[in-house]
Design a binder for these strands. Structure first.
Lengths: 127, 127
DNA sequence: TTACATAATGTTATTTTATAACAATAAACT
DNA sequence: AGTTTATTGTTATAAAATAACATTATGTAA
């Protein structure tokens, strides 16, 4: 279990506490009082945290969430459902989907490393 | 079958002819001789073409490809494999995956509208 | 046709997202 | 201690996307 550096910890904490995905510049403006002053500092921390599997990027929103899945396959397989009304993002941890998709990738002839899946629609509350 | 407007046709043609995903500003610089001079003109055409299901956006690359799938479910379900070495992007049209994932979404309690799936790894040539 | 509404276009400026480049520190290694 | 490697700090810039508003074209109904 890798320990986080100072900046990584600061950035992780704010993402982890948030109930919604955070954008890089929102993170930046929230950590400036802690001494992180410029975009590269944030983006570098984000890159490392993604590498470690501690956070994920929601590609369709350019936003970042903490991994909710304690047994997360070190970011090799990520899946989210995204509500188009309230913007709620939920990480899906379903081992069947993950097996199904990894198997598919293996069979397709590519050397598979990871996938990202994003569902869009209306969540229970909004539909 | 909707007909394309002038700008939509110009933008679609260049994407459709390309063997790789194109970025918005690459498209722009390639259509300036045809009278499309500014980013909003490109982005507006891209938005409409996506709506129609004629092209898809590769979210992880901010790039656009023509739909390869004549029976494409009007962009409700998109899946791609992306080679991390040569950057080749292939659209996957597999009705089993699409049924499997739509079913999953329906059962999850959300009102499902669409999904996007991106596989990463090495293609046959590069592995 | 004319009048009205709607969609598409043209244009300038700006916002948002992300990285290049390089100097300075800190941590890990031998 | 000295050397390598990772992390940080900083300035500037690149890349991706949109806001806002004026103009032109297209569709539609009296």
């Amino acid at each position: 279990m890798q320990t986080l550096t100072r900046n990584q910890q600061i950035v992780f904490d704010i993402i982890n506490k948030s109930s919604e995905p955070l954008k890089a510049y929102t993170i930046l403006s929230n950590v400036q009082k802690k001494g992180i002053k410029a975009p590269p500092q944030v983006y570098r921390a984000l890159d490392k945290l993604i590498e470690m599997g501690k956070i994920h990027k929601i590609e369709s929103k350019n936003a970042f969430v903490a991994c909710q899945n304690s047994s997360c396959n070190v970011s090799k397989a990520t899946a989210f459902s995204i509500c188009e009304s309230c913007e709620e993002v939920t990480e899906i941890s379903n081992s069947k989907i993950s097996k199904y998709l990894s198997n598919f990738a293996e069979k397709s002839g590519m050397e598979y490393k990871k996938y990202n899946l994003e569902f869009f629609g209306l969540c229970k509350k909004c539909k």
